[in-house]
């Protein structure tokens, strides 16, 4: 089993970057074969940008094979209307910090399996 580095990125470290810089930083870290654990979640457009940039990198590099990506958003089904509103206001003010995003380079992470309650990471030998 090869060594695996897991790097945690707190919400604040990405929050003030532009979408372009955020995506660039994440790709660069994935290229360094790190598994990245992010507090928060990317916007849908950023996720699409991340996939596009990943494809460009694969096209340019013979070593980079892409990424595995998943995000985990806590279930908010059983919240009361008041709790739901409070949650939305908090997210609007300070960003969605309850979510978790995992990005792993495909050369390290073979597969990420996810269901509503858990995430499983399968690493390459």
């Amino acid at each position: 089993m090869k060594d695996v580095t897991i790097q945690f990125i707190p919400f604040g470290e990405l929050a003030y970057l532009s979408s372009y810089k955020r995506v660039k930083k994440l790709i660069e870290m994935a290229e360094e074969n790190k598994i990245i654990l992010i507090q928060g979640k990317l916007e849908p457009q950023e996720e699409a940008d991340l996939i596009e940039e990943t494809m460009r990198k694969i096209g340019r590099s013979s070593k980079f094979k892409g990424i595995e990506l998943t995000s985990f958003v806590p279930q908010t089904k059983n919240l009361t209307i008041f709790q739901g509103l409070r949650e939305k206001m908090a997210n609007a003010l300070v960003g969605n910090r309850d979510s978790l995003t995992i990005i792993g380079p495909a050369t390290v992470v073979r597969e990420i399996k996810k269901d509503p309650t858990k995430i499983e990471l399968y690493l390459r030998k």
């Binding site: 094979k65 990424i67 595995e68 495909a106």
Partner: peptide, 9 residues
């Protein structure tokens, strides 16, 4: 459209 993927090896 082509299938969307995050990895291509």
């Amino acid at each position: 459209t082509p299938g969307i993927a995050t990895r291509i090896d």
